[in-house]
Nucleic acid binder design. Structure first.
Lengths: 333, 333
DNA sequence: CTAAAAAATGTAAGCACTTACATGTTCGGG
DNA sequence: CCCGAACATGTAAGTGCTTACATTTTTTAG
């Protein structure tokens, strides 16, 4: 069943059928109804490929993330997909892993499928080395590229970020206000967000007259157990700390588990703050105080901006949203 | 830049270019190299729409899940996407929510985009009422439909499931062996998996000569805090139990939190087993003993089966995988 | 060396749609 | 009652690729 069959049954030309299908051109109410009736009755669905060929778009955007099983990214993907859908777009998803080469491959795949835009979800796509971001710039020559949680200032690239610097600075200030002085900063990767968080951490210390101790700034491995072991190893080597500012909730949860393993009480002996306010933050005991960077708002803004771009309207190159500290049991402000 | 440009530059016909692109037909090594060189140099990418039109496929499969931010489903999606990718397929993802109508709408959308197959991830797509599954049967008239964690016996529908019945039965038997007699069974939805788990639970009780007490079988709300409150309300109404078999990890975590709120020690006063072995199971204190239903294997099998179907080979309508109990701190076997 | 088989390549007809342009129709105003 | 504007519809030329079939070239064997 194709557009010819429909036009035949309805006694009109294919152009007319196409017009009622797309709501373009003008069609008399009578023929429109007749055509719609035929379509309804025959259960006809336009062939998406042919349509894509003609229109040059299939209303699909590529969503890339490094690991869609990560609770935070999964949440982001969920919101992105829903938001796109409400704008009549679908999402081609890929979960690239953390290797640069893979990311590039996936990017090419997306482009070859002629997506209308690409959304890079999460901060792990931007690299400190400029040359490693070139593939993103190249992609932007073909379609708009949206970044969430990272910033790249280039034509046709739009960033929506959370003010991680401020959020972290304020959180750490709270820790300091509650009497902590040796605050461990833990992260897994130096992304834009990671850098901003670290800067916020340092800023808070400086502002409070506490010297920055590089020994307290640590990159930990991925994975809960691995991180628990890592923190324990730091502790057992003699490093002492009374607060933890974690760049991710899972790290914070690890810190909670570490505390228990060394019989430190939380939050008395050790105050802990996580980041992202994902499910895992609520699961630990005590539940983790976490910075909620509003994934939903972030995703909504990203898609809204994208729609503006796709509709040829102007759009802000960068949008900054603010985060919010959600208090739970690992702090005593 | 299209196939004509390439053929011109390479001094061959478009058919030849198409052949080297698809590895079909025979092309002499010399011309193949020449064409590849031109493609490389010009950065040409075939237009996916036109290709789809010609081939009738775009090597895309629709992945539907009810909530891609759910850690378990997110994990499944992640594995599915990667597995598909390794077979040179991409995934169109949607997160449908739990309403039947939405699911149907999304299904139609996927079909109208001419996906090569549809994967329904998670057990929440099948309904007890047969008529509510009709849209799945209809979809199967167009493309193969793969179910993970649910079973529907119909042409062109393939199911890959975990043996939830056995897994739950064995787990509950362990609880009983360790001295529990009043075991609460908690679930959120009666899906195929939910039913199988419940049956396994009942079977274990019967086998051990413990009468099934319907008061101990409860459906709880979604969400951590809500569930904690729900369990607490049961307890405060006088219901007593010394074990919990939860159909999902988050419920198990809720049970842990409940226990703490009522000063019950885990696992001494209350043994708890979760299901899915997702991240959250590891986050609580103590960490939750959980049934690992091998999402990775499930997804791999699903995609493998799909590939067989798409390649016209015969494939088993139903595959059953076994689960494994992962012991953590909420049990003392 | 040649005929037939095999391999390589080209030609052109789809695939199912969109849309610019041409044609036909209706309607109101002079 | 006629003319042109506005509206409705049809015609046909893309859109970029695949592939059956035709044609040419190469290889193989007798």
């Amino acid at each position: 069943m194709n557009i010819y069959d429909v036009s035949l049954k309805a006694g009109v030309s294919i152009a007319t059928v196409s017009r009622v299908l797309n709501g373009s051109g003008s069609v008399s109410e009578k023929t429109r109804q007749k055509v719609l009736a035929v379509i309804e009755e025959s259960g006809y669905t336009p062939n998406a490929f042919a349509r894509g060929l003609g229109l040059g778009t299939m209303r699909t955007v590529g969503v890339m993330c490094s690991d869609s099983s990560d609770p935070y990214l999964a949440n982001a993907v969920h919101h992105l997909v829903r938001e796109l859908r409400s704008n009549d777009y679908d999402a081609l998803l890929c979960s690239t892993g953390y290797e640069l080469e893979e990311k590039q491959n996936y990017m090419n795949l997306m482009l070859s499928k002629h997506v209308d835009a690409i959304i890079l979800a999460g901060s792990s796509f931007l690299d400190m080395k400029e040359e490693n971001n070139r593939y993103i710039l190249q992609a932007a020559e073909h379609v708009p590229v949206m970044l969430t949680n990272s910033v790249l200032d280039a034509p046709n690239i739009y960033s929506t970020v959370c003010d991680d610097f401020r959020a972290t600075r304020n959180a750490v200030l709270e820790l300091i206000r509650s009497g902590r002085t040796r605050i461990l900063f833990l992260y897994t990767a130096i992304s834009r967000g990671g850098q901003a968080k670290m800067d916020g951490y340092k800023k808070a210390l400086k502002k409070s007259g506490i010297p920055v101790d590089e020994a307290l700034i640590r990159r930990c491995p991925r994975g809960l157990d691995e991180t628990v072991r890592y923190i324990a190893s730091l502790y057992d080597t003699g490093l002492r700390f009374d607060g933890v500012m974690a760049a991710e909730d899972l790290i914070a949860v690890s810190a909670v588990k570490f505390a228990r393993s060394r019989e430190l009480s939380v939050p008395e002996d050790l105050s802990i703050i996580g980041y992202n306010n994902s499910v895992v933050a609520m699961c630990s005991e005590p539940a983790v105080t976490s910075i909620d960077n509003r994934v939903d708002a972030l995703c909504r803004t990203t898609v809204n901006t994208l729609m503006q771009v796709l509709n040829g309207r102007s759009a802000p190159r960068r949008t900054v949203l603010s985060a919010e500290l959600v208090q739970r049991g690992t702090t005593d402000f």
